[in-house]
Design a protein around this nucleic acid. Sequence first.
DNA 1: AGCTCTTCCTGAAAGC
DNA 2: TGCTTTCAGGAAGAGC
Length: 304
Amino acid sequence: MPELPEVETVVRGLRASLPGRTIDEVRFGKTDFVDDPALISERVPGLKISGVTRFGKFICIGLDAVSTAENIETAQCLIIHLGMTGQLTVVHSGDPIKPHTHVFFALDDGRELRYTDVRRFGRMLVVSASQFPEFKSRLGKEPLEIGAEEFCDDFSSRRARLKALLLDQSILCGVGNIYADESLFRARLHPARIAEKLKREQLLALHKAIRAVLEEAILSRGSSISDYRDSEGKRGNFQLKHRVYKRDGKPCVRCKSIIRRMIVAGRGTHFCPACQPAGRIRRTSKKDAAAKDRSKKARNKKSG
DNA sequence: AGCTCTTCCTGAAAGC
DNA sequence: TGCTTTCAGGAAGAGC
């Protein structure tokens, strides 16, 4: 699943081969993950790619009018989120089409930028350059840019579990399930701990761990678990360096305890029970227990 | 504020 | 062997 390091790798690849090219034509297959396909068809063809940037897990392809004499409002941002299984690759227009390829951007040099997405959990939209800051403002801070002080301030007032906070894109943007688990392991913090209850040193350790994990993962060109490929269709290598993610049942690289998997914040979560002690986990409240009981009964009813 | 559940979708894996 | 069911998960929205 593409998270910040994977998206950054894709963006670097696209940045090396797209700027300067003009998009001649846009073709669509299935469009249920596209906000407004007609608007993309209307605005994008004829524009020149000015740059490719990343914000959180989003890719932004900047587009400008070829002739600067045009009116100013032609500058556009093509925004793409890869969801779980999205892939953006640049190929020659005659190359075989991979299954589940749903958007084709024909370039003026005989190549094509293609969007492939098996599960179609991704998203694609176009906004005018003037609307872009507003779109961007809905996202939280960049984990590689936020300072230690700021990070501590943001987390120390939160009553949610660390795992939930790390996955919340309106707080920090770009961290997903893999890098949340890997960061928490490095900081020796249990995923279900409440942020507010941590000591300052622990929050500082988490801030440092997030940076370290993301930077190392970018150097390894991201993690390829199943579907992830970069803009040239190549796999990343960071999955070989995961210390807890999908390693449940295996020995901890630090202490040899068996890595465990549990659901936290609704997500499969991997951790070492010895290196990441639970601390004082909030006891299951009567309300939570009742909710759990209800869902269990609902499940039994369905199956029986 | 924050938690749980549901929805979207498909392929892999588990269950029978 | 082969069919059916379950599960995984990023994000958004509902309801509590």
